[in-house]
Amino acid sequence: METATDIITELVQEHTSELVAFAASGVKDRQEADDLVQDTFIAAFKGLENYKGDSSHRTWLFSILRNKITDHYRKFYRGKDQEISGDDYFDKNGSWITDKQPTSLGDEEHLLDNPEFNTTLLNCREHLPQKQFAVLQMKYYDQLEAETICKELQISSTYYWQLIHRAKLQLRDCLQKNWLNE
């Protein structure tokens, strides 16, 4: 008879690489992704007897991993981080500061098909301050509703939108600086 260890060993052999690929696109570095996948398998091992078999092993593993990733963002959000800083994109009249002014990024139609552009975007995302990164990922990567994110992090919706807005301002500025200068 197959023991729990046999089953998990098979799952590790079969699914590690796709789980890591999934986790790696959600967190800031590869080590974190590896740790999350390792935790996923340990949780799966401990919970194997609760696995009802109404979803495939693969779906089950991914749902454990997703929960781990959301937990990770929650912890990440609680970590040390500077508060939202003052306006450094606009002057006192609300006009763009000269060197922050959005300029054209070139052929924007086809930018998304360009793998290098996506890499630049991911690098920019990694440089976001911790809180902004956490909410941005919960919104876009976990695809949680604003309301759910506010509840999870116990923040007001005004503060949530401020964080998202700051994150997007910074992402775009970073793209302009790094994409046009390459």
Binding site: T9, T16, V20, A21, Q38, F41, I42, N118, L122, L136
Partner: peptide
């Protein structure tokens, strides 16, 4: 649009072998 699209980073198979070994050891 870019953030919504699942931008999966590729994972290196060789690195995964090390990880698999470490997970199995942990288990």
């Amino acid at each position: 649009r870019a953030l919504r699209e699942d931008c999966k980073s590729s994972s290196n198979e060789a690195e995964c072998e090390d990880l698999k070994a470490s997970i199995l050891k942990q288990l």
